[in-house]
Design a protein around this nucleic acid. Structure first.
Lengths: 120, 120
DNA sequence: GTCATGCGCAACCTTTAGTTGCATGATGTC
DNA sequence: GACATCATGCAACTAAAGGTTGCGCATGAC
């Protein structure tokens, strides 16, 4: 059965632009829509929309200072998202390993008897 | 700097429905658009579109048998996707750890002197 | 042959990522 | 204080993606 995943959280980090924004925010500590857009191939308005999405799922939080609105990553929240990535990856990985093991077992069976034409 | 990620591959597994489809295909070995749609809250046509997406990025491969079109997961490709999930997770995780470590260092500094009001 | 079933295609709707354009509000300088 | 400036916010519009319904066609079962 499938791993429990917060779809909102996942799809927030599913967007490439938002992932790069998170990278930028992590490496720079904080940033505004304007400053981030300077490092991204999209307009400030697009960045602002993405920040709104990230803010809605709690991955970033804003502090208004004068005319600037600084965003920074909510570390606990991102850690949770990272944990979910790891969970899904681990679930698939273990299933892939199991499949590989079974395939090898079948292969060994074939090598041994070489006439049991097992399918499926 | 951001981790190298194949955006197509990532966004293919970024969709919740497609993730569940991959789960189903992994647990059942194979499936058709019709069979999968029985386990999902969307129509067969929606599933077919998702299968087309997954096929385009190589995560599944189809074999036509009579009037049925069976899809199965390309294990190598999914393993690669899993590796990318792990990479991004690890990158963020290490950055989060570094931030936490710095925060603790600052905290220790404050505890010691209690007047160095350091603000980035 | 006929009937059921699985697929593919087309039209349409809604949401989302992106754009441009403009109004508003805080800063700093003269 | 007035004014140019710069960051933000808001609105309208476009394009792509996820989803739907409806229909036509091929294949397999009887």
């Amino acid at each position: 059965m499938s791993v429990l995943v917060d779809d909102d959280l996942w799809s927030a980090v599913g967007d490439p632009t938002r992932r790069r924004m998170l990278d930028l925010l992590l490496s720079q500590g904080a940033g505004t829509a304007t400053s981030l857009s300077g490092h991204l191939p999209v307009t400030r308005q697009a960045v602002a929309k993405h920040l709104a999405v990230l803010d809605r799922v709690g991955l970033v939080r804003a502090t208004t200072a004068g005319r600037e609105k600084q965003f920074r990553v909510d570390e606990a929240r991102l850690a949770r998202a990272v944990a979910q990535l790891a969970d899904v990856g681990a679930a698939w990985d273990s299933r892939l390993r199991r499949i590989k093991r079974i395939a090898e077992t079948i292969q060994r069976g074939k090598d041994a008897t070489n006439d049991t034409d097992q399918q499926q």
